[in-house]
Protein backbone atom coordinates (compact mmCIF):
# COMPACT_ATOMS: atom_id res chain seq x y z
CA UNK A 1 0.00 0.00 0.00
CA UNK A 2 3.05 2.28 0.29
CA UNK A 3 2.82 2.73 -3.46
CA UNK A 4 -0.31 4.86 -2.92
CA UNK A 5 1.78 7.59 -1.35
CA UNK A 6 3.50 8.01 -4.70
CA UNK A 7 0.70 7.18 -7.11
CA UNK A 8 -1.94 9.49 -5.70
CA UNK A 9 0.23 12.63 -5.79
CA UNK A 10 1.42 11.62 -9.26
CA UNK A 11 -2.13 11.25 -10.55
CA UNK A 12 -3.14 14.57 -9.02
CA UNK A 13 -0.08 16.25 -10.49
CA UNK A 14 -0.77 14.93 -13.97
CA UNK A 15 -4.41 15.91 -13.78
CA UNK A 16 -3.35 19.32 -12.51
CA UNK A 17 -1.00 19.73 -15.46
CA UNK A 18 -3.90 19.02 -17.78
CA UNK A 19 -6.00 21.60 -15.97
CA UNK A 20 -3.22 24.18 -16.21
CA UNK A 21 -2.90 23.46 -19.91
CA UNK A 22 -6.63 23.99 -20.34
CA UNK A 23 -6.57 27.27 -18.43
CA UNK A 24 -3.62 28.44 -20.51
CA UNK A 25 -5.43 27.63 -23.74
CA UNK A 26 -8.59 29.31 -22.47
CA UNK A 27 -6.72 32.49 -21.55
CA UNK A 28 -5.04 32.42 -24.94
CA UNK A 29 -8.52 32.62 -26.50
CA UNK A 30 -8.12 29.32 -28.24
CA UNK A 31 -11.74 28.42 -27.64
CA UNK A 32 -13.16 31.52 -29.32
CA UNK A 33 -13.66 30.08 -32.77
CA UNK A 34 -13.89 26.28 -32.59
CA UNK A 35 -15.49 25.97 -36.03
CA UNK A 36 -12.92 28.16 -37.71
CA UNK A 37 -10.03 26.30 -36.10
CA UNK A 38 -11.47 23.01 -37.22
CA UNK A 39 -11.53 24.26 -40.80
CA UNK A 40 -8.30 26.20 -40.71
CA UNK A 41 -6.26 23.02 -40.39
CA UNK A 42 -7.35 22.15 -43.93
CA UNK A 43 -6.12 25.34 -45.61
CA UNK A 44 -2.84 25.28 -47.44
CA UNK A 45 -1.71 28.53 -45.94
CA UNK A 46 0.52 28.06 -42.96
CA UNK A 47 -0.94 29.58 -39.87
CA UNK A 48 1.44 29.43 -36.95
CA UNK A 49 0.05 32.06 -34.62
CA UNK A 50 -3.21 32.29 -32.68
CA UNK A 51 -5.55 35.16 -33.39
CA UNK A 52 -4.33 38.51 -32.04
Amino acid sequence: MQILAILIPVSLLLGGLGLLGFIWALKGRQFDDPQGDASRILTKEFDDKPAP
Binding site: D32, D33, Q35, A51
Partner: peptide, 14 residues
Amino acid sequence: SARVNLTLKRVSVE
Protein backbone atom coordinates in the same frame (compact mmCIF):
# COMPACT_ATOMS: atom_id res chain seq x y z
CA SER B 1 -4.31 41.73 -41.06
CA ALA B 2 -7.63 39.99 -41.46
CA ARG B 3 -8.95 37.18 -39.36
CA VAL B 4 -12.16 35.26 -39.97
CA ASN B 5 -14.14 33.92 -37.05
CA LEU B 6 -16.21 31.16 -38.58
CA THR B 7 -18.18 30.45 -35.43
CA LEU B 8 -19.54 33.99 -35.38
CA LYS B 9 -19.41 34.37 -39.16
CA ARG B 10 -17.51 37.60 -39.14
CA VAL B 11 -14.12 38.93 -40.04
CA SER B 12 -12.11 41.47 -38.11
CA VAL B 13 -9.68 43.59 -40.07
CA GLU B 14 -6.78 45.70 -38.85
